[in-house]
């Protein structure tokens, strides 16, 4: 896979603390990382290890307690609404829980229209917009004609999640933070969608940061893998290195816990 050496997004000593006093939680604990342009990075870790929190910080949706984020070599500055908007043109996300990602009072068309508008397509004709939305949906195995004019609660979980992915095909961001983007999609569609995403990546040189618990998936798609435990990266490196030859005990445990079909799955270890 092509790997240009430009660092696209990096962090130094990134820390997030929620609450204070007795309820103080150290969600992300002084992590350092550099994600390269056009790379697919997976962040794997158990639930509560701070993956979503890290993604929210990278997106600028939650305050950073300590540390710095560098975007394309410069210190990230999102202090004003305008700068934030500019940043979000480049950095987009797929959120973890599709059920709470939608405004239930808006038809789903708005979600896609917003993306077109954001990419300067406000003035396009209706037909043009319709065409663009249809195309984006086809990338994720959905038929737009069947979905248009529906409300989010009229879709299945997987359909909502796929629609979130469809946004990416309209937005074509430089960086995509995908938080468990395929957790509710069947294995078959998942393969198609991942292929489409990878194709988009090679077309526009998008950096994809995959947050997942599915180690097989992480291995399948990513160039490098970060393993996260209790807010810290315990292991990182190329996919082959980390998943096939794990060094950290935690990584070994994770890989051991993956449900198996060709051999006995040992339930006694938890």
């Amino acid at each position: 896979m092509v790997k240009s050496k430009d660092v696209c997004l990096s962090g130094a000593g990134l820390t997030k603390v929620y609450g204070f006093g007795r309820t103080r939680t150290l969600a992300v604990d002084h992590v350092d990382f550099s994600f390269y342009e056009g790379e697919v990075v997976s962040i794997v870790g158990e639930s509560g290890s701070g993956k979503t929190t890290l993604a929210k910080m990278l997106l600028g949706l939650t305050n950073v307690t300590e540390g710095e984020i560098y975007f394309q070599g410069e210190k990230r500055d999102i202090s004003t609404q305008r700068k934030r908007r500019e940043y979000w043109k480049n950095t987009q996300a797929i959120f973890q829980d599709p059920f709470s990602s939608y405004n239930i009072f808006n038809k789903i068309d708005t979600v896609l229209l917003d993306c077109i508008n954001m990419r300067g397509g406000r003035g396009f004709s209706r037909e043009r917009k319709f065409e663009m939305m249809t195309e984006a949906c086809s990338f994720v195995n959905l038929k737009f004609e069947e979905l248009t004019n529906k409300y989010p609660f009229e879709l299945s979980g997987g359909q909502m999640q796929r629609l979130m992915i469809a946004r990416v095909f309209l937005l074509k961001p430089k960086i995509l933070l995908a938080d468990e983007p395929t957790s509710m999609i069947d294995a078959c569609s998942r393969a198609t969608i991942l292929d489409m995403l990878m194709q988009l990546r090679s077309e526009i040189g998008m950096t994809i940061i995959f947050i997942t618990h599915d180690i097989g998936l992480a291995y399948y798609v990513s160039d490098s893998v970060y393993i996260m435990e209790h807010g810290k990266f315990v292991e990182s490196g190329s996919a082959d290195q980390v998943i096939l030859h794990p060094k950290a005990a935690y990584t070994q445990r994770l890989i051991n816990d993956v449900p198996k079909i060709y051999e006995e799955w040992d339930l006694s270890t938890v």
């Binding site: 870790g45 468990e180 180690i215 445990r253 994770l254 816990d257």
Partner: peptide, 9 residues
Amino acid sequence: SALDVTSQK
């Protein structure tokens, strides 16, 4: 579907 392998287990 929202859980890591250990929690799944």
